[in-house]
Simulated scan of single mutants.
Amino acid sequence: MAVERLMSTRAQMAFMITILVQGFVVLAMVAATFAFVNEHVDLNLVQYKTIPCYLALFILAEMFELLMAFDALRLRNVIQLVGILGFHLALVVFAAIQVHETHAALVATQPTSWINSGGSGSLWRKVLPYLIVAPVIIAVSWLSLLFWVRQLYMEFGWAIFHVVGANPAMKTMYQFYQVMICLLKFDFFAFVGVTMQLLIVVLQRNSAEFGLTIAAIPVVLFLLIGAGIAVQREIKWLMSISLVLMLAAETYFYKLVRFYEPASKEQYQTTRATLTVFTIVAFLLLFTTFAVGLRCFADFDKGLQESKLHGQSYKPVPTNSTLTKLDLLHGDYRLSFSQT
């Protein structure tokens, strides 16, 4: 049995093509929605800013998912593939929420013209089919991705033995490390998603909240990058700082109160649902990252650092064809691999 080169198997190609095709179709639907709305209303008005934000977030999401997919295939990382499935489901939810938020932006309670009437022939009726197609395409493509991830699991499932051998304890520690790195990547997307919405849709440039949001960007980037370096190289002082900053960053959850308190709820009217979902997901992701980070910290200096630094290169590795997956799971021998 041998590991094939990157993007040389049917499962790998199909997985990437599925993400590419659904990305193109969904972005086409979102772009069409943006174009129709932009043709008839002033997108600089507060109530319509959810539309350009919708486009920007989906461009970010599709690019992020594509990079994450390629990265998972490059590293033969099954955990990251599962994370992509979860992310794809979140895109279904986000696309569905946008139907509600676009309706809130375009349809007025007291319409003054066909543009904001919501009736037959209105702008809302014109963009509704495009809004509906997006979550449907994402949901259908998720089923396809689910099938191909199962195939890739069979293809990549043995790879961790090449990195850490058959020791069950080492395997568990390495899996927690993979989960930590994967969580940090999704933390980045969640933070950028919340920040983008606040800066594009809600906050005024001359407000104190705008300045605080801008100031938080380098702090959070330092946190995520620092945590990734610390957990990979097992730098205890940097990991300690990163964990403390994660707890401090949880205070960002106060934004959720701002979305609903009487003094500011009108400011968030057209984006409240999306911002609420993004903020809660970001909070849960960061809390989970903190918990997994503590576990990874406890695994420092236990012989895993070399595997973290050098164990995930994607090169064809021939293996003994007489070894079966059942043999690998028993772990009663040491595996030996040679580079081609």
Rank of each mutant, 00 (worst) to 15 (best):
T319A: 12
V26Y: 00
V30A: 06
A11D: 08
A273F: 09
V202L: 13
S313V: 15
M154W: 07
L275W: 03
E261I: 15
A56R: 07
L43K: 07
L221W: 13
N44Q: 11
Q178M: 13
V136D: 00
L6Y: 15
E4P: 12
L243H: 00
T172S: 14
L131W: 00
S336N: 01
F24P: 02
R334N: 13
Y333D: 06
R74K: 15
K236G: 07
G293K: 12
L123R: 13
K325L: 12
W114E: 15
F287R: 12
I51M: 12
Q178C: 13
T319S: 07
L145P: 02
V179G: 11
V192K: 09
L146R: 10
L309N: 02
F58P: 02
F36N: 13
E250S: 11
V25N: 08
T274R: 08
D299Q: 09
K255M: 15
L123Q: 06
L294Q: 10
T324E: 08
A215F: 08
Y333G: 01
F210A: 03
R150Q: 09
G311S: 02
D332F: 08
H40T: 15
L131T: 03
A32C: 00
R272N: 08
S141F: 02
C182Y: 10
T251R: 12
L81K: 10
L198G: 09
E101G: 05
S240Y: 01
